[in-house]
Design a protein around this nucleic acid. Sequence first.
DNA 1: CAAATAGTGTCTCTAAGACAATATCAC
DNA 2: GTGATATTGTCTTAGAGACACTATTTG
Lengths: 273, 273
Amino acid sequence: MECEKEFLLNYNIDDYERPSVTTDVAAFMISTEEKTNERKAPDNKLRLLLIKRGGHPFKDKWALPGGFLQKGETVEECAVREIHEETNVIPTALISVGTFSKPGRDPRGWIISNAYASIITEESVKQIGMDDASDAQWFIINFGKKDDDLYYLTLEYDDILLKAVLAREKTKFRRAEFRIIDNGDIAFDHAAVIAESLTVLRQEAKNYDMIFNFLPEKFTLTALQKVQETIMDMPLLSGNFRRMVSSYVEETDEYVKGERYRPAKLYKRKNNI
Amino acid sequence: MECEKEFLLNYNIDDYERPSVTTDVAAFMISTEEKTNERKAPDNKLRLLLIKRGGHPFKDKWALPGGFLQKGETVEECAVREIHEETNVIPTALISVGTFSKPGRDPRGWIISNAYASIITEESVKQIGMDDASDAQWFIINFGKKDDDLYYLTLEYDDILLKAVLAREKTKFRRAEFRIIDNGDIAFDHAAVIAESLTVLRQEAKNYDMIFNFLPEKFTLTALQKVQETIMDMPLLSGNFRRMVSSYVEETDEYVKGERYRPAKLYKRKNNI
DNA sequence: CAAATAGTGTCTCTAAGACAATATCAC
DNA sequence: GTGATATTGTCTTAGAGACACTATTTG
């Protein structure tokens, strides 16, 4: 009987209705903010790229960049292509987040999405330049669990403030997933996709292997530590952080000069690990 | 321009060619083998469910169970449905492995697959009963890296022996993926899907959270340890293993009687963790 | 000098690996 | 008793967190 089923599937493949397949990409960047105090080092912010939708559904709402899978490309290639189309930049990292396929998640019809988190360096974004009037903007992202066990996601750019509320629930098979309580005017189910993406990003950051993608080839250990602190949203002790990443980096003989304080040595990522 | 693009996509969605979407499921089970020595405890084997294909392509080759996503279900539900159709059993765990979308991976056309690893208890398989003549069989799986840095996958059932060879390669974005060198007569790209699934399974097993799914509600710590050892393909020291899992389990007041040696206490999984 | 960041060393505690020792059954 | 598994305890070591201390710059 299984043979029959397979046989039929093989030869009547075009008779079956097929879903549209998209990728949604949470592109993260860490920005260096303006100094508030001339003597202090600048602050860092984790930022997420959102696109203002030009058409229905969710017209004028903000959404993750993404688009339909094209024939001849992998879903990873599709994700990179979408980010490149929006930003003119190739991301330095691409991390699989998961498949979103719940019926009804997209009012346009049967559409399943492969979600990815990606990383873009501040350096490359600055080279392109940010247009304040563009429909693509880098929102400051804040995300975490509060005392009420709910997760609060805020995305901030200029005077735009999006605030979503989510619950983390155990589904079948003891897997946890985010359920949107308030989408905070974020399009589709993207509040959940963003929450899941940042959760994956934070999980990966624990291995230190991925944080280098936020920085240029040469960097100071303090800058690297700030990346880690900004992603994880927690302070770290510099002595411990340096010990932890020591096996991942190698020294260069260059220094960052011109600051008010002791020059910092520049490091490179070690490849053979 | 982006607005226009989105707009067009919204309203001409049916004009775009869409891929077929399938799930492939690597269903794992741990079997208790016949005692070779009357005084020794029985051996355990990790087994994987394969289906002999009844039609082209890959007719008469062995493949992972799987099938096309149907409207109104999630990809997870599709995976569970496919396993249930093949085995008449609902798995106790379902773990996402990734999306396989490389063009040409399926000779039938543009087909992308969501791969899952799933776990089925030996108990439930025995209740259904295994038919030796069926086109669905549980193969003993062996997988690991040899000295030549290549990965060897062998699947064994009765006098059927499938031997695949794979390389683990860094792709773009520093991700590692398996490349099939010799598919060993396994259908499609399933040798790579199986390798990736077992890699994910072993990674997950390190957290102890998932290994309970191989056993019934009540189990001995020795049985649990054997599950871990069988998945990871390495011996463990019982004292250390017991310490490690102690926070995940709680005692019952029942014992396993009737063996030749000291009765073992039965444990239950602790839920509130 | 002060004030900031850059970088090093050390103490402690815990978790994990190795392994010894004891307990309890059937025969 | 023997021979197997079941269970507990202890020694050691590696790694991570906390924190003190030194170094180097500009003004």
